[in-house]
């Protein structure tokens, strides 16, 4: 087992374990903490894949912004969160558990059955990825970039409008 594989297995275990913890814990607050661990694991996977920049973005955006936002939302809805005996699942959870396992097994089967057209080159050829990414966003991918920025703006305004107290 190479070092890379060891790191991968560790990251994978952290990710999946935290994910399981997130969906099974009773308290949503604890679940949110588990979720931060999942994000960290995914960031590790990104870095392992050679996408260091994305790993950083993952930590900044997911852990720094989204997770904190979710924590805020949890704390802003105290009456629900405050009840420790509230059931964590809805009534359909056994059915959904079966379905999720089925989905997982189907997807894994699909992954294993597919003959992936792997590239010949080994390591990433692009160095200084953030630079390339920036150039890409300003040239070839300007349209998706602009669409995304408009989407963010709309979401921002929409969120303010929806959440504002009358």
């Amino acid at each position: 087992m190479t070092a890379e594989q060891v790191v991968f297995v560790l990251a994978a275990v952290v990710t999946l374990g935290s994910a399981l913890g997130m969906v099974t814990t009773r308290s949503v607050f604890v679940g949110a903490l588990w979720m931060i661990a999942v994000f960290g694991g995914v960031a590790a996977l990104f870095i392992l894949l050679g996408a260091g920049f994305l790993g950083i973005v993952q930590i900044l955006v997911y852990i720094g912004a989204i997770a904190v936002l979710i924590l805020f939302a949890i704390m802003l809805t105290p009456r629900v969160m405050g009840d420790p005996n509230a059931p964590r699942y809805n009534r359909q959870w056994p059915l959904v558990a079966v379905m999720a396992s089925a989905l997982a097994s189907l997807l894994v089967a699909l992954v294993l059955r597919t003959d992936w057209p792997l590239a010949q080159e080994g390591a990433p050829t692009i160095t200084g990825f953030a630079v390339e990414l920036g150039k890409g966003f300003m040239t070839t991918y300007i349209l998706p970039f602009e669409v995304a920025s408009v989407l963010l703006l709309v979401a921002l305004i929409g969120a303010i409008v929806i959440a504002r107290e009358e």
Partner: peptide, 14 residues
């Protein structure tokens, strides 16, 4: 849940 059931069916088809 119904949506996911549909996805399951599609993956199964694949």
């Amino acid at each position: 849940a119904i949506l996911v059931a549909g996805v399951l069916a599609l993956v199964g088809l694949m």
